[in-house]
Design a protein around this nucleic acid. Structure first.
Lengths: 307, 307
DNA sequence: CTGTTAGCGCCTTCAG
DNA sequence: CTGAAGGCGCTAACAG
């Protein structure tokens, strides 16, 4: 009998088996962007261990505010999954309450979200690694291109990376200057625009710290279009170690993106099995020096005068 | 009664409803890469219309040959979905037979697969748009960096783009030269390596046609590292219109990636409803001229001698 | 330890 | 047109 079943390549109906109280294995992955490398790599990591464990991945793309409202109002994953993974998607109190309704495990990745177990990097540390590198090279006029998703204000990632900038300058005794900070939505073209703003000043920065490599790449474009040299005239540093960064010789702070997905998934599986798992995992980041940063060119009014 | 249910925010159990013969709404999306922009954008398109129609998306990442074997052997989506979408993933006869077993609708996107309804671009035309542009500019020594995924030999995308190159040269009366063609796996770093090969010749090409923007970006890196100018010394053209291309001033042939996903999903929904839908949809591509291409510099041994 | 039976929560069909 | 009953395919608890 068993053999006959196999020959007809029979498989149990997951519906029926779940209905009857059988084991269930489905998790929802909720993600704000899909075409950005960061999220793709994260999902790749998640999916790889989830698939290994034979759990299915339901994908929910929650892009703009509309999607978001819809998602939390309708809770499309309701009754369909045993766990939820939030990718770079902080939730407010109301949303948390809605999620509560689903009565399933929730894990966050890419951006610490206090109320759920999470795995992420330390964005403050990453930012410090970047800014401290610029300071070490001797820069004192350092600009920042800060990322800010209007659909997700207060994303901890941006907050940590911004704080790092201010703290590093403060510790170095450099007064903060608002005109050296440009805040834009994430995305290369916007990085380019932000750099336009930084360049339209009497005294532009000698180095720019961008919250992400994509922003940094945009900034480099603007700098070069202005006829200036990177790093000769202006140094640029990003965060992520996006695949193009290597091709563009962009100095950056590498974060293990895929690994964050992997760890989050492993953690989740533990919790699903009722085992213990860390509530907070922080993976290390690392400065990767390439050729978009160098010491600042000596300033004419100083170096010009022989002692 | 109905009100009470709503107040407790009741939702029907999808398991039970499906088991009892109710409508089912789940589709599997099978994808070979997640962290590449092309696939991310495709999924974004798919997901947006699928979600609109309240159908859930199960994600299956089938990366290397191992994954692939596993996927077709175990058919993890079996009995779980009402349709399958194959993203840039041609299947051979054996695999097709396995898929048959699932007894569901199958659609292909991004790369024509004869045996299933598909939506894609015309890769031959796209390639011609690229190569013809180089020819129009006056180039006669044109190199090609061809993409080839070892896990998916004979991917129609690569085939069409390669044929376009040969046909265009032939029509222009330019003899084919094997040493001007470098074939590598898709990925920017490999584009850079391929360009190394093209440069290590007595007479390198004056223009390079890359099968994708990512390959083209890698090629530009190598060219510039060699101290050469793009497009002054060597013109570069890609295909895709990847977001970074705009930032890097890469001339390219744009393909509507997200739209391919959208159309495929709409098509699929039609078919699921039993309505008629086109079996083959080809979306148009378009040359986008930026600053990585220009007419070839007059050759010294010709231009150098005054008439 | 194998074989049987009662639901799981819904949809659909039938009778009222 | 509204209301009760059977069964979808499985699992778990039960009896033999």
């Amino acid at each position: 009998v068993t053999r006959a079943a196999e020959e007809l390549s029979y498989v149990a109906s997951p519906e029926a088996s779940r209905l009857a109280g059988g084991a269930s294995t489905r998790v929802a992955v909720v993600v704000p962007h899909l075409s950005r490398w960061f999220f793709g790599a994260l999902i790749e990591g998640l999916e790889s261990v989830l698939r290994e464990a034979d759990v299915d991945v339901l994908l929910y793309h929650v892009g703009d505010a509309d999607d978001r409202h819809h998602f939390f109002a309708r809770l499309p994953a309701r009754r369909k999954v045993d766990a939820l993974v939030l990718l770079g998607l902080p939730v407010d109190d109301d949303e948390r309450q809605r999620l509560e309704l689903m009565g399933v495990q929730i894990t966050a990745v890419g951006g610490q979200v206090a109320s759920y177990p999470y795995v992420c990097i330390d964005d403050y540390v990453a930012g410090r690694q970047a800014v401290d590198h610029l300071l070490f090279l001797g820069h004192r006029r350092i600009g920042m291109i800060a990322g800010n998703d209007p659909d997700q204000p207060g994303w901890p990632v941006a907050v940590g990376r911004t704080e790092a900038y201010h703290a590093a300058l403060r510790e170095a005794g450099i007064p903060a200057r608002d005109e050296l900070v440009a805040t834009v939505d994430w995305g290369g073209d916007l990085g380019a625009q932000a750099m336009d703003r930084l360049l339209s000043q009497r005294e532009p920065p000698t180095a720019v710290y961008a919250h992400s490599d994509e922003l940094a790449v945009g900034a480099m474009r603007t700098i070069r279009r202005a006829g200036l040299d990177v790093p000769g005239d202006i140094s640029v540093i990003g965060i992520d170690d996006h695949p193009v960064s290597e091709l563009l010789d962009l100095t950056t702070v590498r974060q293990p993106v895929r690994d964050q997905g992997v760890v989050a998934a492993q953690n989740l599986l533990c919790r699903l099995r009722g085992e213990h798992a860390d509530d907070a995992v922080t993976l290390p980041t690392q400065l990767v020096v390439r050729r978009s940063t160098s010491p600042p060119r000596p300033r004419p009014d100083v170096a010009g005068r022989p002692t």
